[in-house]
């Protein structure tokens, strides 16, 4: 018997897909076992984010099978794992492209053109934010502040960084990624030490930029 019209049940909660059977590779299992030892023995749940990163790294995104495996490892319920997965933005429950382009859209990046960068990336790939291109190479996502506002606009590509990307550089940037992969990324400019030295080195005393812009 129906106790309410169908439209009443307007919840859009969709379960992630089941996926193929999942278990950690021996290498990931060893990594997990080492990580979980950092926490008190009765607090295995602290390792849940780490376990989810391992699972995501292993198959690209998180399926129900993977979440059950994580639950088994942690010693909690699958619902508790899904609770965590659905909260944090860095976990994917659908397949994503080989390169996930996370464009920062928050104020400091937006002030110097991040909205235009997103537009240019979307136009070049023929997709909107949140979508993956037909070849499965790129997923475009708008994210909130990445914490590198001095090098805006910033794009996080998987775990790597591209800084100061202008809309005009977008097609060149995509080509470089296709050809050279993550090696094409600028990385964090602080790591390019030779460049970080140079002009800033001469400044002394008051007004010395600790780490200034170019």
């Amino acid at each position: 018997m129906e106790y309410a019209p169908a439209a009443f049940h307007a919840s859009t909660r969709a379960l992630p897909e089941e996926g193929s059977p999942f278990a950690f590779t021996p290498e990931n299992q060893a990594k997990f076992d080492a990580n979980v030892a950092r926490y008190p023995p009765e607090q295995r749940k602290s390792a849940i984010l780490y376990a989810l990163y391992l699972a995501q790294g292993q198959q690209g995104y998180l399926t129900r099978a993977a979440m059950r495996h994580v639950a088994l490892q942690i010693g909690c319920t699958a619902a508790e794992v899904e609770d965590v997965v659905s909260y944090y933005t860095m976990f994917f429950t659908k397949p994503v492209g080989r390169y996930v382009l996370n464009v920062c859209r928050t104020l400091s990046c937006a002030l110097v053109g991040a909205e235009r960068v997103t537009e240019a990336l979307g136009d070049a790939l023929g997709i909107k934010p949140g979508e993956t291109d037909p070849t499965g190479t790129f997923t475009l996502i708008e994210v909130e502040c990445l914490g590198a506002c001095d090098r805006a606009p910033v794009v996080m590509v998987n775990d790597g960084w591209q800084e100061r990307l202008s809309p005009e550089q977008v097609s060149q940037f995509l080509e470089a990624l296709r050809a050279r992969g993550e090696a094409a990324l600028s990385g964090c400019h602080l790591r390019r030490e030779k460049q970080a030295v140079g002009s800033r080195q001469s400044a002394v005393g008051s007004g010395q930029p600790a780490v200034g812009g170019d």
Binding site: L107, S108, L111, V112, C149, D150, R151, A152, S206, Q208, P209, A210, V211, G212, G213
Partner: peptide, 16 residues
């Protein structure tokens, strides 16, 4: 440490 960003010529972290 002061983080300066936005419409300035040399955005960056400055210690003062």
């Amino acid at each position: 440490l002061f983080c300066i960003s936005g419409h300035v010529k040399r955005p960056g972290v400055y210690e003062a």
